[in-house]
Amino acid sequence: MSNINKENKPTKNILGVLVQNQPGVLAHVAGMFAARGFNIDSLVVGRTEDPSLSRMVIVTSGDQATLEQIRKQLGKIVTVVKVRNYSEQECVERDLLLIQVHCPPEKRSDLFELTNVFRGTVVDVGSKSLIIQLTGTEKKIEAFIEVCRPYGILQLSRTGLIAMPRAPHKTGE
């Protein structure tokens, strides 16, 4: 017999967790992660098309056994209605970034151009800085942050990932 905790490399996992829209649900979910020593990379909660339900998108990491435990332990929480593993299917994934970059007037056009390349939007222009908004996959967001870094990042805020599985059969495939 083998010890389950001695296998596999850590991987990232995206879970879609449908929960009852009730006070205390977030505490139950966050408390379970804390009590069992599981990681949360990001957690986003929002309303759904049904007012009695909310959806959490949780990005976690761990080895296979840990991820399996996370899914099962989530499933045990009474107010959790359904747990889906988004990593097992093709999903649209989006993160939203707001980033304030140091930007004297002479650098504005550079940054505007960069923002365009990444299909971001400048949402605020100050005398020495810009706020840029960008949505996309985590990879894209991270790439953009790296591009901004040389200019001087004053503030940065991200929503964390939300995701939605694509329709099972795409036309044209």
Partner: peptide, 26 residues
């Protein structure tokens, strides 16, 4: 010590709690 528990055995695990299964041993 888990690594040497029932070293030659295959394991059947019957339990109502799915989270109990494969929590400690394969």
């Amino acid at each position: 010590k888990l690594d040497t528990f029932a070293p030659h055995a295959k394991v059947i695990h019957i339990d109502i709690d799915p989270a109990s299964i494969s929590k400690n041993v394969k």
